[in-house]
């Protein structure tokens, strides 16, 4: 299942990764190889096998519904590039 350059660029965009144009063919080859392996595994008959959700064979542990966290805004915002009036500021985004 070979991927073309266009698809590599789209995947990079979705993952917000900057990929140099000259590297695209190499990524295409490597990703295609991975997909070929997937296709090979896909041919194994897995009827009746429950898909594994996690490698640990344990159920999720639950916590009691108690709010115990204290306000640490100042500490957290000390590493933020820009804050104002308690808000984190980011470049303008409007959908």
């Amino acid at each position: 299942m070979p991927l073309d350059s266009h698809e590599v660029e789209k995947i990079a965009h979705l993952a917000r990764l900057a990929v140099r144009t000259e590297d695209v063919p190499e990524y295409a080859t490597n990703l295609s190889n991975i997909l070929t392996l997937m296709a090979q595994m896909d041919s194994v008959d897995t009827a009746g096998v429950t898909p594994m959700a996690h490698p640990l064979d344990m159920p999720q542990r639950l916590r009691a519904d108690q709010a115990t966290e204290s306000n640490q805004r100042e500490l957290f915002q000390s590493i933020a590039p820009q804050v104002d009036a308690g808000l984190y500021l980011v470049p303008k985004v409007i959908e």
């Binding site: 916590r63 519904d65 108690q66 709010a67 115990t68 966290e69 306000n71 640490q72 805004r73 957290f76 915002q77 009036a85 308690g86 808000l87 984190y88």
Partner: peptide, 23 residues
């Protein structure tokens, strides 16, 4: 609920911004 789905931060409405957002 009193606390968030995956953390122990409060879910109370109307608090000053980012005072109920934990790590």
């Amino acid at each position: 609920t009193n606390s968030k789905i995956f953390s122990a931060a409060s879910t109370a409405y109307g608090a000053p911004p980012n005072t109920q957002a934990c790590a």
